[in-house]
Amino acid sequence: MRNKSLLLKAWGLLVALPLLPSLVFAFQSTTARRASYGGLTPQAHWEELWTEVMWDITIIGGVYILVALVFFFAFKAKSKDGVGASPKLSLQAVIGWVMIPSMLFLGDDLFLYVKAYELHTQMREVPANAQEIKVTASMWNWNYDYGDGVDADNELRVPVGKPVVLRMISEDVIHSHYLDKYHVSEDVMPGRITWEWFMPDKIGKTVITCREYCGPNHSKMFGKLIVLSQKDYDAWMAEELAAVMDKNTSSQQVASITTGAPLSIKAVQ
């Protein structure tokens, strides 16, 4: 009896072993990179993790399916009334067959979790120098408000190389602001300001599109992210500001426009 319980304890220790290397490895790799995230942009970091996760599940799945296929071939019935001959499991074997796979799964879970947590930190910490743009969603339109009376529908222009944070609210139902190629989406809803940030790192155009079902024209609620060089962006901004000034002087309604915030955002602030 005493021997048996000792044996069980030994099992317990043994099966916890796979946890250790995976944890050590994951923590090491992440703490080393925490300061700068390895110099990766959030989107590159996301793609790196995505590739790792895909490898992870491909290897697990590959091994599992391979073993299964071997069994399916090897243990095909030889006669119509044959019966199986699976071994009877001892208590130790039962515990082992629970603990070892569980610890392997847990080890893999923790390994991926630590890495995903690191990415989470990067994607949910807005850099101090981020430019803030207000987004107002409505059926079926995206409005981008840069302040100083400059705003645009369904076209988001930003300068390359500078982080941007979007503060978002909806005038009607729930939408979700998805930036293609930046792997980021956040729901936009009435009564609550949500946000996402991204790092435009390449000059050019990408798709912005709604990712939360919002009615018959949900799939038509899209726009463009236009990343410009700083020079082009400044030129565009100057043009817009000039247009605002023109409008202001002609309509004499300076006060209400220069507050810069759409009505609905003010209402909940």
């Binding site: 996301w46 993790l49 995505w50 996760v53 895909m54 992870d56 599940i57 697990i60 799945g61 991926l112 979790y113 995903a116 947590y117 990415l119 989470h120 990067q122 994607m123 949910r124 979700s176 998805y178 792997h183 980021v184 989406s185 956040e186 996402e196 990712r211 939360e212």
Partner: peptide, 20 residues
């Protein structure tokens, strides 16, 4: 296939890119 493809979805930061 379904079980394995659940793993990326469980990671909140990975989900930001594939949600919906």
């Amino acid at each position: 296939f379904g079980g394995l493809t659940g793993i990326p979805n469980a990671l909140s930061s990975v989900d930001y890119g594939i949600s919906d």
